[in-house]
Design a protein around this nucleic acid. Structure first.
Lengths: 185, 185
DNA sequence: GATGTACTCTTCAGCGTCGAAATTTAGCTT
DNA sequence: AAGCTAAATTTCGACGCTGAAGAGTACATC
């Protein structure tokens, strides 16, 4: 089997290799910019893998976790309508219906019609659902602390500040992606 | 419609609101860590939305673009086998078969049996596919430059360095996510 | 030289999501 | 009060991905 350059075996190249390859194919590339952007992508991908493992260990899916997060974030009685949830999670209402079906079956949320406005439906977190969220949160914070372990307090502050600056720029530039967002934090 | 606290309308909270809400529900939260992690998530989400718009403007999908990137990264003759591509993109071989079907129909790649080893299939980038990649790259670099516009050279260097450090930590900790990766940079 | 074994790719059934149509209810207009 | 319009949710058909089973090819061993 050829180790000839140009015959990739499917293994992921290191970031440096990748940037070098892009530069060969596209001279205008700014390696500095590419390094930041690619590292952001890869970092996020790894984080999602880690979160996926954690939710799996708790017997739920990442999809479930997103819904739990949205409900907890909504505060006190932990209630939201399906379409609000859908907007929040970047799903169509149709997809939301099925997700809620599953989660009701799993006992994480309840679904009931709003008696004061019978068009609406109220999705409410169950105590079991809240407990799952809490467990997931505990695992997540352990992982996150571990991830940032090597950063000094000053570096953390600086990093947080720079990221917020980038975020502000991009959120201001694309006011809301047309209404639905694609993922949840 | 109640503006009662606790009755979310589905709009995304600001990062500050979100962190405050999490702190209310989970006292052990380190706001510093949470800020970094959440900003990373949101940033990545926005970036993906932006890339999605760009590929759509070019008449391809993000899925197509991922394949094009992998092939270009593989270098000179721009050839890879389906299973290598699948590993690289974090898909099952089954999904890869269908993606290649589509992309062959779109004229972005060709598929042929390897005559020297008839079990294998060779997917090769067409000139049209390479041109699409180039167009996407041009759009992407404009967006990326814009994103990092406000950062001084020193800040860019520092950010790149810190991100690489984080990446190294997480890539070392989870050697390869069990073989398949979930996304491409 | 035949058979077994490993590998690559494709096919198939199931699930989640999307886009659009259908259903149900609320509020407004005449 | 009847009908019309708008809004929230569910249902339906299509598509992409997964996991598992199936088909074809190469290599090794006997």
């Amino acid at each position: 089997m050829g180790d000839t350059p140009g015959t990739s075996t499917g293994t992921e190249p290191t970031l440096e290799e990748q940037i070098a390859a892009y530069q060969r194919e596209f001279q205008d590339l700014d390696p500095q910019v590419e390094q930041i952007v690619s590292a952001l992508s890869r970092l996020n991908r790894r984080m999602n893998v880690a979160y996926g493992r954690q939710t799996a260990a708790l017997g739920i899916t990442n999809a479930d976790w997103e819904v739990l997060k949205a409900l907890v974030l909504s505060g006190a009685p932990y209630r939201m309508g399906p379409s609000d949830l859908a907007k929040r999670l970047g799903l169509t209402p149709a997809a939301m219906t099925h997700r809620i079906d599953r989660m009701v079956a799993e006992g994480l949320v309840t679904r009931e019609r709003d008696e004061s406005n019978r068009v609406r439906v109220i999705v409410e977190l169950t105590p079991a659902g809240r407990e799952k969220w809490l467990e997931a949160m505990r695992l997540a914070t352990v992982f996150e602390g571990d991830l940032l372990q090597d950063l000094s307090p000053a570096e953390r502050t600086a990093l947080g500040e720079v990221l917020i600056r980038l975020l502000r720029r991009v959120e201001h530039a694309q006011p809301d992606a047309g209404g639905r967002l694609s993922d949840l934090d």
